[in-house]
Computed example of a mutant assay.
Amino acid sequence: MSKEPRIVRANIFAFPPNRDTLGGTAYLIVEKDGNVLIDTPPSTPETQDFLERQGGVRSLFITHRDSIGNATQFQKRSGCQLIIQEQEAYLLPEAQVTSFQQEIQISSQIQGIWTPGHTPGSACLYYPQQGGILFTGRHLLPNPKGQVVPLRTAKTFHWRRQLRSVAQLRDRFSPETLSLICPGASTGFLRGQRAVEGAYHQLATLDLEAYEAAPALL
């Protein structure tokens, strides 16, 4: 039996890992302007029932190509807006896609930000409520110590570009505008925590120059 999504904050839920997205974690923001789903959750009757109970989904935001999963089928079933960075929109030929270049305003409170490097169209979603919450997909992930870091893998598209994207996020935010990071994978490393606390401090203290020579993980 599928697990129920967990509450991250009062109006934010994290879904169980999705095998169709390489174990990725999808999130739902419940908002008066319309609910926003970040990446595709497991395609189960339990997921569908939960989303219906929350009022459906207005927009589905894809953080990178490996988190697409069954997004096309999800859109056909729900009628939601499907948002993805323009360099990866071609991967959804049968969907009605809303693509963007640098940034996109999804609602009055929610913004998508292009953060290339992990993949060409990797992107984060920013929600300014509750001290500021950043949904990072696989752009930033928790390591075994629960610290949020950029992770170089054999599939990383462009490592230095990814580090530049991390630096741009660091420069964009402040302790007042970023308090929490919700990563799109490796959430087991959070040891029961629902998200990464003290997010800006962790971002600001990353030694990005030291990361440049990091070997790729398998």
Rank of each mutant, 00 (worst) to 15 (best):
A123R: 03
P93Y: 06
L51F: 04
V57Y: 03
N18F: 07
L82R: 07
S107H: 02
L206E: 06
R164I: 12
Q147Y: 05
T115N: 09
T119M: 14
P41Q: 06
I106E: 02
A95I: 10
E86P: 08
A26S: 15
T177P: 05
G137W: 07
Q73A: 11
G55C: 09
E197N: 11
Q109W: 01
L82M: 05
I12T: 10
Q168M: 11
S108I: 01
L22I: 06
P42H: 06
P5K: 07
L91V: 02
T72G: 08
Q48N: 09
S165R: 06
A185S: 14
P93V: 03
Q111W: 08
E103A: 10
D171H: 12
G131N: 13
G24V: 10
E88A: 12
L218H: 10
R138G: 00
D20V: 01
A26N: 10
P5R: 12
I7W: 09
H201P: 02
N11A: 14
T205M: 02
P17S: 10
Y126T: 03
R65G: 15
T98G: 02
L92F: 02
H201K: 15
I104D: 04
S107I: 07
E209D: 14
L22Y: 15
K32D: 12
Q111V: 08
A185L: 12
G192S: 11
Q101D: 15
S78I: 04
I62P: 00
G23R: 07
N11E: 13
F61N: 01
A95V: 04
R65V: 10
F173E: 09
T153W: 11
V97L: 06
G184W: 04
D49Q: 15
F157M: 05
I110L: 14
Q109M: 11
Q54Y: 07
L217N: 11
I38P: 05
S59Q: 01
Q193Y: 01
E212H: 03
C182P: 03
P116A: 02
V148D: 00
A26F: 05
A26P: 04
G69N: 13
P120E: 13
L134W: 05
G184Y: 08
L28W: 05
